[in-house]
Amino acid sequence: MIRLDRVTKNYGRKVAVRDLSLEVPPGELFAFLGPNGAGKTTTVKMIVGLLRPTEGRVTVGGHDLQKEYLAAKRILAYVPDQPYLYDKLSGYEFLNFIGDMYDIPRSERRREIDRWSDLFGMREYLNLLTESYSHGMKQRVVLAATLLHRPKVIVLDEPLVGLDPHSARLVKEVFRDQARAGATVFMSTHVLSIAEDVAQRIGIIRDGRLAALGTLEDLRRRTGRDGRLEDLYFSITDAASPQPN
């Protein structure tokens, strides 16, 4: 469903992502890990069409992001690392705006808003202006907005930042359920325990290159270690990093 074919992205002379090929099929929750500045957000933004690859091709649901961006975006949902909300709209109005944007019929929209409001515990504040929300409240509204149009591909960039442990667990379960229901979920995160708990496959990017790709077992075999993902992650990312004296 998501396919990156020999994708390279340069910012001037800096190579942010180098010759990246990756395919995430429907029904998979894929965790994308890597140190700060490794190229995670650049990759995510190329998948959702906010950045153009310098070389290579990105397709979502078979649609080329550069040529058929509207078709691709209709099946896509994106949660950025810094979610955008209109300060002077209530959460309810924002969700309705998303409903309008994706042309969701009124009755279905109401049902979906009710469903996600209950699940994320948003009912009590959904009629307040979003400017009064805490970061966690905003994040929950954005996550609900993401799921409103039943996307086939969900791209998440650090979706758990600012969420309390209850909400974080809830979000984990929600996206695992989405993947079970057939959606493709691409999650970029720094929270290794979440990747370990819910991801079917894990990709680790370092200095713009895909340093490792596979299931947790694959990574264990590759590193020759039997520990938690944290140990494997450090083993992979430290392999070529300069060691402190």
């Binding site: 959702v48 975006k73 209709r74 994106y78 950025p80 998303i98 944007m101 994706y102």
Partner: peptide, 8 residues
Amino acid sequence: EFLLAGPL
């Protein structure tokens, strides 16, 4: 950025 990520 938010609007460009949507189907508009």
